[in-house]
Amino acid sequence: MSKTLGNSPDPIELIKKYGADGVRVGMLLCAPAGNDIPFDEGLCEQGRNFSNKIWNAFRLIKGWEVSEKEQPLEAKQAVKWFNSRIGTVLEEINDSFTKFRLSEALMSSYKLIWDDLCSSYLEAVKPAYGGKIDPRSLKETIEFFETTLKIIHPFMPFLSEEIWHRLADRPEKEDALIVAKWPEQEKGDELLQREWEVLSEILSDVKNQRNQYGISPKEALTGSVNISGRLNQDFSRLFKKLGNCTIDIISDGGDTSPRKNGVVSLDLGDKLQEEEKKNLEKELEYSKGFAKSVEKKLSDSDVLLWAHSKRRNSERKKLADALAKISQIEEKLEQMK
C-alpha cells in the first residue's frame, strides 16, 4: 500500500463500513511495531466482528433473569478461574504497553475477551435455557465485564463507552469510562489456570469426536482420559454443562501440575462401528467406480494412446491395486456384520 501508488483505501469509507473501533483494531492487528504493514481490509472486518462479539456478550448478560439461589459450584470455579486469568493477562498487557508493543497488547486483550470471557467463562456461568441466574454470579459477571471494558477502551473507545453506560446508570462526569481507573490486579494463580486448560483440552477432544462421528451435542457421552499430575478440582459439573459428557479422570498419581495424556477415549460403542461402516461403504463405492474407469481405458483400441507400453503397464497396475482394495473392504464389511 502506498500513497504514491494510490492503492490505499479511503479511511473514512472504512470507518463507515466497519466502525471506527473496527478499523482501529484492524490497523493494530496487522502492525507489529517497526515492520512494514501488509494491510488487509479483512482485518477491519475482524475488528467489526470483535465489536459484534462484545455486543452480543453484553446482550447475553443483560438478558439474564435473577432468582435468589446459591451460586452453583461450576460458576464458583469459573469466577475463581477468570479472576485469576485477568490478573495474568493484565500483566502481559501492561508489559506490552511498557514496551510499546501495541499489537501484542491488543492481541492479549482480544483473546481475553473472545476466548476466555466469551467462549469459556460466560458458557460456564450462564443459566440453562429458560433458567435463571443466581445474584452473586450476575454481580461478579458484570464486574468482570466492566474490567474488560476498561482494558479494551484504549483500542475501542466508542463501543466500550456505549456498553459502560448501558450496564449501569452513570450520570456523573467522573463516572464515564474514559476517565475510569485502569484495573490493577495481582498476577493470577498459575495452577488454577493450568487446570482450566486441561478442562478446555478435554472438552475440545470431546467436541472433535462429536464432529468426526456426527454425534449430536444433545447426546450424552461418557469416557475417560489419562492425566499426568494431579487435577485438584472436580470438573464433573463443567463436563456435563459444557460438553454434555461424563469423563473419568485417570491420574498417574504424580504431584505436578496436570497435563492431559493422549486423546479422551469415549465410549462410542455401536456409534463408532456405524460410522466406520458408513465410511467403508463410501470408499468401496469410490474404488469400484475407479476400477471401472480404468478398465474402460484399457479396453480402448486406440493404437496411438497405447503406443507407450510403459503407460499401459501403469494403468494395469492401477487396476490391480483398485481390485485388491475392493476385496479388502468387502472382507472388512463382512466381518462387521
Binding site: 482501529r24 476498561k150 477502551h153 484504549p154 473507545p157 474514559i178 481507573k181 485502569w182
Partner: peptide, 12 residues
Amino acid sequence: TIQDVLVRRARL
C-alpha cells in the same frame, strides 16, 4: 490510532 491508544490508556 497508536497515539490515541497510548493517550487513552495514560488517562485511565
